[in-house]
Amino acid sequence: MRRASQFGRRPTIIDVAIAAGVSKSTAARVMSGQGNVSPKVVAAVRTASRDLGYQRNNMAVSMRSGRSGLIGIIVPDISNPFWAEVVRGAQERAVLSGSSLLIFSSDWSAERERSHLQALVQTRVDGFVLNTIADEGDTQDFTNLGCPFVLIGTTSDLYPDRSSVGSDIPQGVATALDHLSRCGHDLPKLITGPPRRLARAKFVSAINRYFIDRDIDPTGIEAENGEYSVNGGRAAMARLIRHHKGSHMTVFAANDLMALGAMAEARDAGLACPADVSVIGFDGIPSGEFCSPPLTTIAKPSRGIGEDAMRLLGRLIEGDSVVMRPRLPCRLVERGSVLDFSATRERTLHLA
């Protein structure tokens, strides 16, 4: 196969098509990430492209198509490994479609989110993915943005007429509580997010619904609010420890950073995990595997959320107006932070 230097010029899509043994239009579809091409043909075209050193002329493509080849994504906290994985999934999908991803973190600030949205519109992105931090009393008006978008996360529930991707929170909560029940735990204490956040309301609602459906009164469940951070988990755990009466404590945290903070606070208070305190998290961030003991958690499909959001956005950019709202299942990652009572005695869920 001829290399780029052998052409005496920049390789074109025609060169790629000839090398791959396909038509120019097929090669172009593969390089732009469009569907309806067999995996074998995709592999042949991408191999030819790599061997020839072919690179798309994004300016020419933009002039012909009216598109910039730029996609935006705004998440609330890029330092949280969960959101970093969401971005990773979106980026992998963007690369396959021949687009470049512009990444923004709102840092849980509505004002910063609006500023990022304005920057994306001014940059003339082809579309964007957004986890808006709006709550039930402060929804955003997206009608004047002028480009397609897909929402991700719990707050997308506030916009039922918009395409979105998220985790199946009730299913994830049920998976966690089923695990605690199998291990013989009483009603857990909760570490939840800030009071006005929709994510907090949905998490607590799913827990209440789980117990009500099993004829168990959830009103006695103790909960402490906090920021979705290690320090937020520490502060909430400190309050739970001060108020705790009894022997073993079981804690269900709304995200893994809070769970890790809770474990650290328990250790500083002289409590052993899981002998004195059992902790289960929610997110499935990689760092949970490396704490001591490793964190038992409910893993959300973080990378899958990013990939599916980009897939839906691609359809919207192509003119598909069908609203789709998939909710992806979570899974239990069982490690060492939850004590298993079931091996020594039988217990059932009841009010402490």
Score class of each variant (00 low, 15 high):
residue 344 T to P: 05
residue 233 G to K: 05
residue 269 A to E: 06
residue 313 L to Y: 13
residue 62 S to R: 10
residue 306 G to Y: 10
residue 247 S to M: 08
residue 236 A to Y: 02
residue 253 A to S: 14
residue 158 L to A: 08
residue 340 D to P: 01
residue 1 M to N: 12
residue 333 V to F: 06
residue 204 V to D: 08
residue 201 A to H: 14
residue 18 I to L: 13
residue 170 P to Q: 07
residue 196 R to E: 11
residue 280 I to G: 04
residue 100 S to H: 14
residue 346 E to W: 13
residue 54 Y to G: 08
residue 303 R to L: 04
residue 304 G to E: 09
residue 300 K to W: 03
residue 165 V to A: 03
residue 64 R to Q: 12
residue 31 M to E: 03
residue 256 D to H: 05
residue 211 F to T: 13
residue 277 V to P: 04
residue 129 V to I: 15
residue 53 G to W: 04
residue 244 H to L: 11
residue 9 R to F: 03
residue 206 A to H: 12
residue 44 A to F: 01
residue 217 D to E: 13
residue 4 A to P: 01
residue 103 I to C: 02
residue 202 K to Q: 14
residue 134 A to I: 01
residue 319 G to E: 10
residue 75 V to I: 09
residue 69 G to D: 09
residue 78 I to M: 06
residue 7 F to S: 03
residue 123 T to A: 15
residue 168 D to F: 07
residue 206 A to R: 08
residue 180 L to E: 03
residue 147 C to Q: 12
residue 175 T to W: 01
residue 260 L to G: 00
residue 110 A to M: 13
residue 308 D to G: 00
residue 312 L to T: 09
residue 134 A to R: 02
residue 179 H to Y: 14
residue 82 F to V: 13
residue 183 C to F: 11
residue 228 Y to H: 03
residue 190 L to N: 04
residue 26 T to S: 14
residue 232 G to F: 07
residue 8 G to E: 06
residue 223 A to N: 04
residue 189 K to M: 13
residue 244 H to E: 10
residue 44 A to C: 04
residue 172 G to F: 07
residue 29 R to P: 00
residue 59 M to V: 15
residue 326 P to S: 13
residue 94 A to M: 10
residue 86 V to H: 07
residue 180 L to I: 01
residue 209 R to W: 00
residue 325 R to H: 01
residue 161 D to Y: 06
residue 315 R to D: 08
residue 259 A to L: 04
residue 156 S to F: 04
residue 176 A to G: 00
residue 345 R to V: 13
residue 80 N to P: 03
residue 73 I to L: 05
residue 143 T to F: 00
residue 7 F to K: 06
residue 208 N to M: 07
residue 255 N to L: 10
residue 31 M to L: 15
residue 110 A to W: 02
residue 268 D to I: 06
residue 332 L to H: 10
residue 223 A to S: 15
residue 330 C to W: 08
residue 17 A to E: 08
residue 205 S to H: 14
residue 283 D to W: 11
residue 285 I to K: 05
residue 133 I to H: 10
